[in-house]
């Protein structure tokens, strides 16, 4: 023990004698370190750390808020798009329905018009037929009258010229029979 302590004492005393060793503690430096460090701590705490850390947290909050806002905006936009899509689909369906309805209507209308025109045409044809028949009958009766007249006139003429009564009557009857047929 004594040897070691002697040895250490010798080594350190020799070291200290000559310009100092790195292990020397200078009380002045301790004092100045305390003063400098504590002053630095106070100054930085007041003028640097507080504002800097506040700015940092302010910015962090700002970024967080912005991200949240962006997220919300995106969700809103997505909702809007979905809504728009639904609306569009609905409108499409409606349009389809309207087209279908109008097509039906048109079809019905077409059928109706066609029917009507067919009926009208039928009626017109039948009217025309009746008219023609009536006119025919009329013409026939007129013709009959005229023929009778002509025949009578012709008979008169023949009679005037040839009064062969029996043969003439026979002849007339024969003509009349022919006319009848």
């Amino acid at each position: 023990m004594m040897i070691i302590s002697n040895l250490l004492l010798l080594v350190f005393s020799e070291g200290a004698e000559k310009g100092g060793s790195p292990l020397d503690v200078n009380p002045g430096v301790i004092l100045w370190t305390v003063v400098t460090f504590l002053f630095l701590l106070l100054v930085l705490k007041k003028f640097a750390w507080k504002p800097i850390l506040n700015s940092l947290s302010e910015r962090e909050n700002f970024i967080k808020d912005s991200l949240e806002k962006a997220d919300k905006a995106q969700k809103d936009a997505e909702k809007l798009i979905a809504e728009n899509k639904a609306n569009l689909a609905k409108a499409d369906e409606e349009a389809q329905k309207i087209i279908e309805q109008s097509r039906d209507l048109a079809e019905k209308l077409k059928a109706q018009i066609l029917d009507e025109s067919k009926n009208q045409a039928k009626k017109m044809i039948s009217d025309a037929t009746q008219e023609i028949e009536r006119k025919n009958a009329e013409a026939f009766s007129k013709l009959k009258e005229q023929v009778a007249d002509i025949a009578v006139n012709a008979a008169e003429k023949i009679l005037k010229e040839n009064l062969n009564k029996e043969s003439q009557i026979k002849l007339v009857n024969k003509y009349l029979d022919d006319l009848k047929n």
Binding site: V29, W32, T36, V43, L44, S55
Partner: peptide, 30 residues
Amino acid sequence: FDISITKHVVFMWLAFVILVSTLVFMTKSY
């Protein structure tokens, strides 16, 4: 007590000046 200013004390003060000026500049830029 011997409280002479030494080389290391001067460099601590230099560190002090550098830190205060840089960090105060930083707060201004914020």
